[in-house]
């Protein structure tokens, strides 16, 4: 049926308003649940860097019991309030938003993994990472043991790396290659840990700073390497501060 132009325009207008209205209603209504889902996923990832997480367990409870978090700036000074003066929750710091800022102006969350009910008995520090992969952003959480040198565990994730190739950074098999590696060399300089090209490197090239990469995903691996190096550098003042404090304690005990 041929309708007049006015009818077509009015019909389209009404349809747009109804559909748009319904969608914004749905979006607003679901926002709290979406925020909760994201927070849950973040906390699960942070915990996965230091322990096996059983999805059946109450992850939020474990997180509250075993993680105490702080936020520091690029000079390792504690940051307690955001720009609006509200208290900052490290788990809610938007790493992507921080990544877009100048490294000196970013906020850096630090998650301290401790025994339940004993916040002083820290067994690992978990840092947040963000960088560029091949197609889009990649991020991760890497835990350092209290010597601030040995990697206790790593979790990596991505937005759009190639499935089966770069996307394999989400696999435990790949992430576990980081475990036990060192980020400082013997001279005490930051060397980070690098993924090499290809999967089957001879043992002679694999050492404390070099691990096997992923076949067919060298650019993603390079992205991960850059991300690690950059962020370890960014966290360096904080790492040094903790080392300094530990040395002081050691001297006192002696």
């Amino acid at each position: 049926m041929q309708r007049s132009n006015t009818y077509v325009i009015i019909f389209s207008l009404i349809l747009t308003i109804i559909l748009g209205g319904l969608l914004s209603l749905a979006s607003e209504g679901l926002k709290p649940a979406q925020k909760r889902a994201e927070e849950f996923a973040t906390k699960k990832q942070i915990l996965s860097a230091v322990m096996e997480v059983d999805p059946k367990e109450n992850i939020l409870q474990i997180f509250d019991d075993r993680i105490s978090s702080i936020v520091v700036d690029a000079t390792a000074e504690l940051v307690e309030t955001d720009e609006d003066g509200k208290p900052i929750d490290a788990a809610k710091v938007d790493i992507e938003k921080q990544f877009k800022r100048n490294p000196d102006e970013r906020l850096y969350p630090v998650f301290r993994f401790h025994e339940k009910g004993d916040p002083e008995n820290i067994s690992a520090y978990i840092f947040a990472f963000y960088g560029n992969g091949l197609w889009d952003n990649i991020w991760g959480y890497i835990a350092l043991e209290t010597d601030m040198n040995t990697i206790a565990g790593a979790v990596l994730d991505h937005k759009a790396e190639t499935p089966g190739l770069g996307a394999r950074i989400t696999e435990k098999l790949v992430q576990n290659r980081y475990r036990g590696k060192k980020i400082f060399n013997e001279e005490g300089e930051l060397e980070s840990v690098n993924m090499l090209k290809s999967e089957n490197n001879p043992p002679s090239v694999l050492d404390e700073h070099n691990i096997n990469g992923m076949s067919g995903a060298t650019i993603t691996a390079k992205g991960v390497n850059r991300m690690l190096k950059n962020y370890f550098e960014n966290y360096l003042p904080f790492i040094n501060k903790i080392k300094e404090e530990d040395r002081k304690v050691a001297r006192l005990l002696n």
Partner: peptide
């Protein structure tokens, strides 16, 4: 879009 929003909230 509705499906997408619901999945985002309940099946992240």
């Amino acid at each position: 879009s509705l499906v997408n929003e619901v999945l985002h909230a309940y099946a992240f």
